[in-house]
Nucleic acid binder design. Structure first.
Lengths: 153, 153
DNA sequence: ACCAAAAAGGATAATTTTATCTTAAATAGA
DNA sequence: TCTATTTAAGATAAAATTATCCTTTTTGGT
């Protein structure tokens, strides 16, 4: 669906965003831990996010990652775009280059609905919205640790 | 979204299915060519499809791959399940193990809609339906070769 | 000016997915 | 029974993705 890197990226961004009230900067180690992603890999992803101005970073002591108010308004699709690109939302369900609205592959119409629902989900959800859904005290990882079930139901 | 292997698998199956009227068997080479997939890799995928009784194979001279009438009734999800498994349709949009209906991650509800739309597309489309959308003379690859555009629109 | 802390950047490694190659098994026909 | 053809199976390779490590740059505090 979307890459692991991208999921880490969304989680990291949302976590950083959730701390905006505190006015603190978070370092890679803290973020990686809370977000349950490998540290060095998380660092790479945070780099990308910073370059795309999804989040902001500051080097040096007392440095780290944080997010600005205006960045909370950004839709989650911006993160997906920064890490995975937009190809998934254009690609044919059968992987055919030739498939288009005018020359649709046999699955085109069915698949299109799903693809657009996914795009929609990422487009109309903002980083701020996700962040605000995190109950403040605990991390969004710890939020859920009571359950061992997957997202099936 | 779904793997390349799985897309090859769907294409191959649909192509084989589209020949049911002719009562012929197709060999790997023909299938791979028409479906625009690497030959040896296609062979592996056809093997899997045969094991899962999506299609049927026969060894030896005059052997090859074909599909039976009853197999046309199968939903495309069976192919996805055979090759990729069903995990995509259960997984959390943020990749969180802990995410569930009771303890949803911040993206849960939005993502669920898209995930279910995708599942739906694969579940309610049968192999026969896709095959019948292929205009008979040409392959479904060649069908579309007039266009160079992707499936964006 | 120097030191320590933190991100940035580059190189490398591990894993997974995609792809190929080679040999074995099955089977139809001569 | 032998041969040719075709899939099955196993081993290996290539490419892409995920992950780690090491060095450089930036910067705040002393």
């Amino acid at each position: 669906m979307i890459s692991k890197a991208c999921k880490y990226g969304i989680r990291a961004t949302v976590f950083v965003a959730s701390k905006i009230e505190l006015g603190i900067k978070l370092n890679v180690k803290e973020i990686a831990k809370e977000v349950d992603a490998p540290e060095a890999f998380t660092a790479k992803i945070l780099q990308i996010l910073n370059k795309h101005r999804i989040i902001t970073s500051l080097k040096g002591p007392y440095g780290g990652f944080f997010i600005d108010q205006f960045q909370l308004e950004q839709p989650v699709i911006n993160i997906v775009n920064a890490i995975d690109g937009m190809a998934v939302f254009r690609e044919c369900g059968l992987g055919l280059e030739q498939c288009s609205e005018k020359h649709p592959c046999p699955m085109h119409n069915q698949y299109k609905i799903a693809r657009e629902a996914l795009l929609d989900a990422f487009q109309k959800t903002t980083i701020g919205q996700l962040a605000s859904q995190l109950s403040d005290g605990t991390s969004f990882i710890n939020n859920m640790e009571l359950s061992s079930a997957a997202a099936t139901d």
